[in-house]
Simulated assay, not measured.
Amino acid sequence: MNRVLKLATAIFILTSVHARADATEDCNDATNTTQKIRGCTEVIQRTMQSDALSTAYMNRAIARAERKEMAKALTDFTAAIHADSENNFAYYNRGNVYLDLRKPKQAKADFTRALEIAPDMSPALLNRALANEMLGEREASIADFRAALALEPTLFAASEGLKRLGATPP
């Protein structure tokens, strides 16, 4: 869970009229995972807006992943994707969970989908490179590490990945 999993927490939920404001605040901002899960669950139960629903599922999934509840996190990330199929952060974060579970094939598919939605998402390129590396796909891994560095030249993990694979930076 040391990857950039928390990108989604900065996205604010647009709640329906019926959702309580403090539940939304808890879902967005609580540092206590129990409080965050409770707030997101309330938002999920009360909102109908697909983007708000997707973000609430995603924030709850992040809290569950922090608690090492990976099966529940995967379920929530999948629900976030079903609520909004263009939520690149949901794909990215679900890919991180798959990577943590040593399921690089599934992780690669999610990182690829995140990149289809947001081609300049350097963390997705970096983590897809890691998934490719786990799959033994050296050239694809090198290409992704280089692409990540092209977007973000100071990305240390990408430079280290290239060194590990015996490749030179772009």
Rank of each mutant, 00 (worst) to 15 (best):
A140P: 00
R20Y: 10
L7Y: 15
A80H: 02
E42D: 11
I11Y: 09
N96C: 11
A83S: 10
T9W: 07
S141L: 04
T154L: 06
E160T: 09
K72G: 11
L99Q: 12
D51E: 12
D100T: 11
I11M: 08
R138K: 15
S16A: 10
L53A: 13
S141F: 02
H82V: 06
N59H: 15
A158K: 07
A8V: 09
A124F: 02
T55P: 06
E69V: 00
A23W: 07
Y57F: 04
P123M: 01
A131S: 15
L149E: 01
F145M: 10
D26G: 07
G39D: 01
T9R: 10
R38C: 03
A90E: 14
P123S: 11
N32G: 13
E137F: 07
R94T: 13
L5K: 01
L165T: 12
I62D: 01
R113D: 07
A63F: 00
G95D: 15
R3H: 11
L130C: 06
P123T: 04
N96M: 03
A90F: 04
R113G: 00
T75Y: 06
A114I: 00
T47M: 06
L155D: 02
D144A: 05
M70H: 10
D110A: 03
N2R: 09
E116D: 08
Y91P: 03
C27R: 09
G136N: 09
M121K: 06
N93C: 09
R164G: 07
G161C: 07
A73P: 02
A19T: 15
R102H: 15
K103D: 07
